[in-house]
Simulated assay, not measured.
Amino acid sequence: MLGTTVSPQHDNLWQVLQSYYQLTKPRIIPLLLITTAASMWMAADGQVDPLLLLVTLVGGTLAAASAQVFNCIYDRDIDYEMLRTRHRPIPSGKIQSRDALLFGIGLGCLSFTLLTVFANLLTALLAMSGIVFYMGIYTHLLKRHTVQNIVIGGAAGAIPALVGWAAVTGELSWAAWLLFAIVFLWTPPHFWALALMIREDYAKVGIPMLPVVEGEESTTRQIWIYTLLVVPVSLMLIYPLGVSGFLYGAIAILLGSIFLKKAWQLLQNPTDNQLARSLFKYSILYMMLLCTGIVVDSLPITHQLTALLTDKVEMSIAAMSRL
Rank of each mutant, 00 (worst) to 15 (best):
S234A: 15
Y202V: 12
G242L: 07
P211F: 01
G215E: 13
I105R: 00
Q274F: 08
T35Y: 05
P26H: 10
L290F: 11
R76E: 05
I28A: 02
A156D: 02
H190C: 02
N269H: 15
T139Q: 04
I317A: 13
Y80L: 15
V48D: 05
L101T: 06
L54I: 10
T4L: 11
F70T: 04
D49I: 09
F133Y: 13
D311H: 15
L299C: 05
K281R: 15
I182H: 04
S298I: 10
G46W: 05
R86G: 01
G157M: 04
V58T: 09
L194M: 04
A63P: 11
N71K: 05
A176T: 10
V163C: 11
L241K: 11
R76L: 13
N120S: 09
Y286I: 12
S97F: 02
A167C: 10
Y248C: 08
I95D: 03
A307E: 15
V132R: 00
Q9W: 00
A263Y: 00
R221W: 09
L194P: 06
Q274C: 03
C72D: 14
N120F: 10
L255E: 03
A161N: 01
D75I: 08
L299M: 13
L102T: 13
W192F: 06
G170P: 03
A100P: 05
E314A: 11
